[in-house]
Design a protein around this nucleic acid. Sequence first.
DNA 1: GCGCACTACGTACGCTGTACGTAACTAGGA
DNA 2: TCCTAGTTACGTACAGCGTACGTAGTGCGC
Lengths: 237, 237
Amino acid sequence: MAVGGRSATPEVIWARPERAGRGPRPAYSRADIAAAAVRIADADGLDAVSMRRVAAEIGCGTMSLYNYVPRKEDLYELMVDEVGGEYEFPEHPSGDWRADMLALAHQTRALMHRHPWLPGLMSPVYGFGPHVLRYLEYCLTCLDGLDAAQGTKLELVATVNGMVTTYVGNELATAERARSMPWSPEQENAARAAYLGREIATGKYPRVAQAFAQDSGPVDMDAVFDRMLGRVLDSFT
Amino acid sequence: MAVGGRSATPEVIWARPERAGRGPRPAYSRADIAAAAVRIADADGLDAVSMRRVAAEIGCGTMSLYNYVPRKEDLYELMVDEVGGEYEFPEHPSGDWRADMLALAHQTRALMHRHPWLPGLMSPVYGFGPHVLRYLEYCLTCLDGLDAAQGTKLELVATVNGMVTTYVGNELATAERARSMPWSPEQENAARAAYLGREIATGKYPRVAQAFAQDSGPVDMDAVFDRMLGRVLDSFT
DNA sequence: GCGCACTACGTACGCTGTACGTAACTAGGA
DNA sequence: TCCTAGTTACGTACAGCGTACGTAGTGCGC
């Protein structure tokens, strides 16, 4: 009858027991595998995370990995949850939910700067691993002080996380994009700016021209981040 | 020496002339190629969009496509801009920027429902093709009535688009995810809900439990969309 | 202690993006 | 007008991917 119990019904990886009843003791833990994948992605980008490469990193045959991770997508879920373990929560929320959520968003941004592939996995993956659940529980604890329906609180968390993901994703896009390209992010940006300048000079887009003309000088990304986030949070007050 | 002028310096696809001075007249237009890729993605998902498949769709050899599209990523830029041409702008903005931006967001959402792969391309692609520039120009025209700095207007557009992308991306995630899976989105959702229920029952996440318990009954996605969007827009008033 | 579910892993298939070489073609400069 | 350089077209080939499948070997539950 062949192979292990790879089911044809949808499975959530977190629902699988790490250790099955029968058979030899698994040689690696889920955390080992996740950590290996994260290490590879941090070092060489998300594209470098292949089943073969991860298997080699933890030191087993390629197909053995499928005993732990039935599909590649599940590996992504493991990775997201793994770095979710890097959040540091204070013993108790401060009581000021706005400040607490802002601090959490700063942690998220820092996390994404440490793991630049993370924004790219936030959309396709929407798993609820243990770390993610822990994070969500803490968020809701912070929001105990907010007088709103449960649904609204979830909306708040989702909105803030969406905004942070989008923002940091854009922040990192050029750099991540250029990772496997033969040119630097600066060259890339220069080429795009040159094209945009030429296009704007045609006069077909006067307002775009005006908007980008005024936009000279370096932007303080931290300030912009706080301002946008502040607006979003205020909208829930 | 060989091959055509594939440069090692970064190039923006839009900066390439469709017709080069020398050589035979190109057999296909950029729009032909973009339309073919969009057709494939609509029919069989984004993963089905391969250089081979697109080439076959327009009826040329695989490698001929590289004369038009130097990298696969550029194909994605073409696709995004192509569907950007589906926006329908009124002759003049109404004068109520809030209403206009809301209407635009509704168009974006409809666009993404028509082309479910679009949210997945919004983060990696940040090109400024002709249709996108046209869209941006119209956005800024709507915001003529808003008393704010140019930078703030760009922030508004970016924030709204980010929110819409995130929201619709989540809306479509399950369906798109299940496209190449052997089970239905309903089965997938059921499996995830079952796992989540089991996890919540452990009592380790009381607030998550409470939030999801209260969340019974079907959600009106349109209403949630409008409410979240309204909040974001209000935050710029 | 038997049997079966599990782990481990090699091989193989069909697919991907794309480097490169070659042949046909055409517009610009002489 | 002809020449030639740059372009289009396209087949071949390579390295890599996810993963189906078959085959051993291992150790828990009955």
